[in-house]
Amino acid sequence: MTNEPNQPKQHDAVLGGQSPPPVQGAILGGIEGVKQRLASPLVKARIVAVNEALNYADAGLDLVIRALQDESAQVQHCAYQLLRDRIEPQVKQALREYKPWDLVERLLEKSKIYYRFTRFANRKVKEFDPQTGITQTAGAAYVLKDKHFDALLQDPKASKIEALLFAWGGAFHNDLIAAKDRLKSLKAVFSGPYGCDYQISWLNHHNISPILEAYPQLEILQVRCGGGLDCNPLRHDNLKALIVESGGLSSETITQICDLKLPALNHLELWLGTPNYGGDSSVGDLMPILYNGLFPRLAYLGLCNSEYSDEIAEAVADSTEIEFLKVLDLSMGTLGDKGAEALLNCPAVNRLDILNLSENFLSDEMIERLNQLDVQLIANKQKSIEQDYRNYRYCSITE
């Protein structure tokens, strides 16, 4: 009798009807049952199918490779864990191409907010010069100074621009929305004080929802502001990264962000700040992000620049979301050894790719223990109460 891997095995149940198989049930119909379960709207059913697929030789292996592109980060993570140690050439190629998160620029010293960017949205940053116009579109991000926006829009290549940095902040808001028919290729936007002598608290921001509505193809939105940021509930199918740099992010703003429907989001980074500048949030405001699966493709979670970093670390370590992250970023905050201990005691932390705990209040002994984890640890530039005029822990960016 021939061994046909694509056919039901002796004890497989026979698939019948169109109803999806129960999550905990036996695999129905051999590999066809696995395929049906992978098409289920239930994430748990797809995870079960991925785990069973390798029972069906090369055909099952192909299904696991395809699961790396599933809309759910949980399913992707399951497939990645099954494939990471395999040696087949097609698996190695798939893992090389698998990039659930690739904004490596966000791992640089972010507290240097007065510095000019060299890269934004994985593109080389160039200052727009009205005299020379647009010289490059693919792979370039143009910095716009006040009064240069009109000149850029008049350039024949404006429709091919992919990324813009508005160096004067919120004042660009209405102009950008009005230009939506000219900037048809725009995928990344930064707005906020940039490359000048300023305090982050000086600038309030507008509602970001009209920008998202005007640019349905937008993939990255990075906002730098003191306060005033808000958003209305909406669905945006293409936004991959939302970064809010603030010295004081309000509880209300966090709630509004949690109400956004962003199925493609894989990078969420919030600078929480201090109550002295409007940062009145608490760890309870973050619970929907940590437990409710709001953003199914999330791979990078940054809860940075916080005065309650120990509480955040304890909540993250106990959360369901930590199981599916590639990068956890708690930098620029007030994390001490107590919060770090919670991370050490969380098995899922050891399955991260990167753990960024830079610019906190960790002891040398704790950093040595954290270095035993099987992750890339970033723990440079620890702050010290003893070496600072302040006699308390503080977040890095406030005013």
Rank of each mutant, 00 (worst) to 15 (best):
K160L: 15
V125W: 05
D388T: 15
L108P: 03
T320R: 13
D12C: 04
K126D: 03
A45E: 15
D146Q: 14
L265N: 11
T334C: 09
Y215D: 03
L28Y: 10
E386S: 03
E245F: 04
L54R: 08
S191N: 13
Q387C: 07
A67K: 08
R369K: 15
R119S: 03
E341V: 07
G284R: 08
L15C: 13
D280K: 05
E219M: 10
P20T: 06
N356I: 06
E213Q: 12
L268K: 06
L152T: 01
R37D: 15
H205F: 09
N380Q: 14
E52R: 07
I397H: 01
L270A: 02
Y142I: 01
L373D: 11
Q81E: 01
N3T: 12
K240E: 14
D259Q: 15
D259H: 13
N122T: 02
D197R: 06
Y142R: 01
L107H: 10
C395T: 09
I211M: 13
L144E: 09
L290H: 05
L107I: 08
Q90W: 00
A158W: 02
G195N: 06
N292T: 04
A163N: 02
K126L: 08
A79R: 00
Q74T: 12
S185C: 04
A188W: 06
V125E: 00
I113M: 04
K261E: 13
S111K: 11
G30R: 03
F190Q: 04
E269G: 07
G336N: 07
G339K: 07
Q7D: 08
N292E: 14
N360P: 04
L242C: 13
A141K: 01
T137V: 07
P5C: 07
M366R: 00
C231S: 09
N238I: 00
R116Q: 05
D374V: 09
E399P: 12
D388N: 14
L68G: 03
P296V: 04
F172Q: 15
L373M: 15
E307T: 10
P156D: 03
G17R: 13
V23G: 11
H11V: 08
T118G: 00
S358W: 06
R182K: 12
G248C: 04
L108F: 07
R46D: 07
T2K: 14
K383W: 10
Q199C: 02
K126P: 01
G17H: 12
E52P: 11
C196V: 01
S159I: 06
K145F: 12
E252G: 09
L42D: 15
R369W: 00
C231L: 08
V75F: 02
D197F: 06
A167V: 10
K160Q: 15
F120R: 00
Y56R: 12
T137E: 03
